[in-house]
């Protein structure tokens, strides 16, 4: 286990290095941040001075080297938009909001998709199954920017049920639901098809012949086996939520998380902030992957991690 973890951490470092390099290169191509920092009236000398101050006048390799050597000390420089503020500090200020959103959304997705999928699988082809499948398809086919706005329109604008934007936990309910709904659709379908497979398997038949109760066959044997494909997809959903969907949901609900910050930093060509955000997200993605692998090992004894 220890060896496995260190191996995965090394792999993770390679991934993080790759991602940060890519982002470093891409940011240098999207424009000159100096134009965004200084007012239009600034003279060419002022621009050059700022450029030299920020190091953008050096060769790209030299810039990359100092970026890397600072990054290993977790020094990502200062934001150019939030003047003179440590980029990592800003990310840490926004991160909890995103984590709240993702964790809440994924808990909702987990708690709903597992029983819904299992219930649908008990009588495949019957009315309840067809209803749940249709609902799942609608859920997974609805884009979040649209779904979010519809929800927003009805909950906050028309009926004023809850406020949106930053605030107490009630403000989290609908952003989390918006994040969760397409995932619920996808995960329900996965649980359903995995459960159908498991319930038709030979070991289930053998367990029935032993006299094991239906409840135990479904809830213990089939569910644990169906958890194997489910965990793969669930991990993927967490990663996609963390590294993508939050961006949309945060923008729609004006939720002050990392996604909101990312959009801002790209708009303002805040290179150092962009790099920091991508770095932090990449680290989280790597960690989620490791957690999934460990979950695998716990569920399925055939999985060897060493």
């Amino acid at each position: 286990m220890g060896r496995y973890l260190s191996q995965r951490l090394v792999q993770g470092l390679v991934v993080i290095l790759g991602v940060t390099t890519l982002v470093f290169v891409v940011t240098r191509m999207i424009g000159d941040p100096v134009n965004f920092i200084l007012p239009l009236s600034a003279s060419e000398e002022q621009r050059a001075a700022l450029r030299a101050d920020l190091g953008f006048d050096r060769s790209i390799l030299s810039q990359f080297w100092s970026f890397l050597s600072d990054a290993v000390r977790l020094d990502f420089g200062e934001s150019t938009y939030f003047r003179n503020e440590d980029a990592l500090g800003i990310v840490r200020r926004f991160l909890p909001k995103t984590l709240q959103l993702v964790v809440a959304g994924m808990i909702v997705a987990f708690v709903l998709s597992v029983p819904l999928g299992a219930i649908a699988a008990l009588r495949p082809g019957k009315l309840l199954d067809k209803f749940l499948v249709t609902l799942s398809l609608i859920g997974l086919a609805t884009p979040q920017f649209f779904l979010g706005q519809v929800i927003l329109l009805f909950t906050s604008v028309k009926f004023n049920l809850v406020q949106f934007g930053d605030g107490p936990w009630t403000h989290l309910i609908f952003p989390a639901l918006t994040l969760a709904l397409p995932a619920i659709g996808r995960l329900t379908m996965v649980v359903r098809s995995a459960m159908i497979d498991e319930l038709n398997s030979q070991y289930v038949k053998a367990a029935r012949a032993k006299g094991v109760s239906r409840r135990r066959i479904v809830g213990v044997h089939a569910l644990r086996n169906a958890a194997i494909p489910f965990v793969t997809l669930f991990g993927w959903e967490v990663i996609r939520a963390l590294a993508g969907y939050t961006l949309v949901v945060e923008a729609v609900f004006d939720w002050p998380g990392l996604g909101d910050l990312a959009i801002l930093s790209i708009r303002e060509r805040d290179f150092f902030l962009i790099q920091t955000i991508v770095f932090v997200v990449a680290v989280m993605v790597v960690l989620v992957n490791i957690v999934i692998d460990i979950a695998y090992k716990i569920i399925d004894p055939r999985v060897k991690i060493a």
């Binding site: 398997s201 030979q202 038949k205 053998a206 012949a209 006299g211 044997h221 194997i228 004894p301």
Partner: peptide
């Protein structure tokens, strides 16, 4: 079922639940 009449199946490779120990399945 399983008590007065018991059954053994054709395929021993798939008749046991792969994710539980054989002991726990006998105990069950």
């Amino acid at each position: 079922r399983g008590q007065e009449i018991a059954m053994v199946f054709q395929d021993p490779m798939t008749s046991l639940d792969p994710v539980f120990t054989v002991g726990s399945q006998v105990v069950e």
